[in-house]
């Protein structure tokens, strides 16, 4: 047999990425303790605070404001928990080391988790949009919906980066608790549950420290709740957060 006449078999990167993403999806699907709270909390809160307890009046439109901010709240958790907890577990149990020793295409591991986070963000966006238009009485032009979705998708990046850094630092057991310690206070301090205008002034003053605040401003600007807001500084801040978190995580995970 003449081996030279046969084309050398090649690795299909597309197949690696697809299988990696499929396995990541199955892992999340089979861990309902992650998937259910992530998918249900933002719509549940929206239903409670924007639909049931919403006294319409004044200039604050809770139904529109909270559509934007609970969307951001929904973007944060697949990044923080999906990345933070699974990376911490994979690292602690040696699965990450094995994958790095195997000829896995270097981007496949992170890409699959990123795609899952974007998928969860999309599902949450769709559920919130359905609730807002049917029960919340929200009417927005198509352009606003698109801008809101674009902001949510972009927002996946800094929180995945933060989750990755978290996962590179802490143990698998500690990761969920620490992710919650970041998730809930940051959401509150960034005005995702109620506008910062109703809170003490110093909370508004330190808000630019939180990536969630910047993303919240982008989402609110998309739905017309932040008139005159400049977009570029927030986009730049989120990009900077992403780069810094990725750099910190890379340093932790670097080959020794």
């Amino acid at each position: 047999m003449n081996a030279a006449t046969l084309p050398a078999p090649r690795v299909s990167l597309l197949r690696c990425y697809a299988l990696e993403a499929r396995n990541e999806f199955l892992r999340l699907l089979r861990a309902p303790s992650f998937a259910l709270p992530t998918l249900l909390f933002p719509p549940m809160f929206y239903l409670l605070f924007a639909v049931l307890f919403n006294n319409r009046g004044g200039s604050f439109q809770a139904n529109v404001y909270l559509l934007a901010t609970y969307g951001v709240f929904g973007v944060m958790s697949p990044g923080l928990f999906g990345f933070g907890v699974t990376v911490a577990l994979d690292r602690e149990r040696g699965w990450l080391a094995l994958k790095r020793a195997l000829p896995m295409p270097p981007g496949a591991y992170l890409a699959s988790k990123l795609v899952m986070a974007a998928l969860f963000a999309t599902i949450i966006f769709v559920i919130l949009a359905l609730l807002a238009t049917t029960l919340g009485g929200v009417r927005l032009p198509a352009g606003a919906w698109l801008s809101l979705y674009a902001a949510d998708l972009f927002g996946v990046l800094p929180f995945c980066a933060l989750g990755l850094w978290l996962g590179s630092l802490v143990s698998g057991q500690a990761a969920p608790a620490i992710a919650n310690l970041i998730y809930l206070p940051m959401s509150f301090l960034s005005g995702l549950w109620m506008p910062l205008s109703v809170m003490p002034a110093f909370i508004a003053k330190i808000a630019p420290l939180w990536p969630a605040w910047h993303l919240g401003r982008l989402a609110l600007a998309a739905v017309g709740q932040a008139p005159g807001e400049a977009i570029a500084p927030h986009v730049a801040a989120l990009a900077a957060f992403t780069l810094v978190f990725v750099a910190l995580a890379r340093r932790r995970l670097a080959r020794g």
Partner: peptide, 25 residues
Amino acid sequence: LQSAGLPDSLKVRELLELTRSYYAA
């Protein structure tokens, strides 16, 4: 490797399919 905790929730077939995809033949 000596200590490799594979993801508990994945089936053996899924783990094998993924790892096979890293190789040319």
